[in-house]
Amino acid sequence: MVRFIGLEGVGTKYELETKSGDRIAIIFLLNRRIQIYIQERSCDRPCSVELTETEAKRLSSVLGGVPIEKERESVEVDFMGVPDLTLAMHTYTITKRLHGKTIEELAIRKRTGANIVAVSRRGKTIISPPPHLIFEEGDIIVVIGDKEQIERFEKEIMGI
């Protein structure tokens, strides 16, 4: 059960209590830093850490149970309002063998069911890339799909 409350002048607080009675509070401060408090049931004072935004995102990936590697990582997104919906997004780096090919030519969606939702090229992000986009070596692509689609994508397209 998550309790959510806006704290005027401080930020936003999320509180949850685990089944075993341990408590966690997460506060998103106005200065964009994040404080996390954890308190064991038998303990009368909580411990806390303060994270930057990037650190918090890393932590959320770890908690999401996804592999964290530089080349291939994935992020799971849950929505508070839609508890049954989990989206997993995976990133891959375009290798030499895909250089110069387009999404259309590779027929990624038809062959694997997975979708490319974004391409990051030299620090710029292209959201929903058009089918005629030509891949360049070093592009980082973000792929969305269920487990089987991702497996097929890795095997057939990336050749891993």
Binding site: L7, V10, R23, Q35, P46, S48
Partner: peptide, 22 residues
């Protein structure tokens, strides 16, 4: 408010009351 943040008191129910007082 700064001391609530710096002294890591934001988990406590008392801190919420302090914020409402402000």
């Amino acid at each position: 408010l700064q001391s609530l943040i710096e002294n890591r008191k934001l988990m406590f129910r008392e801190s919420e009351v302090v914020i409402w007082i402000m």
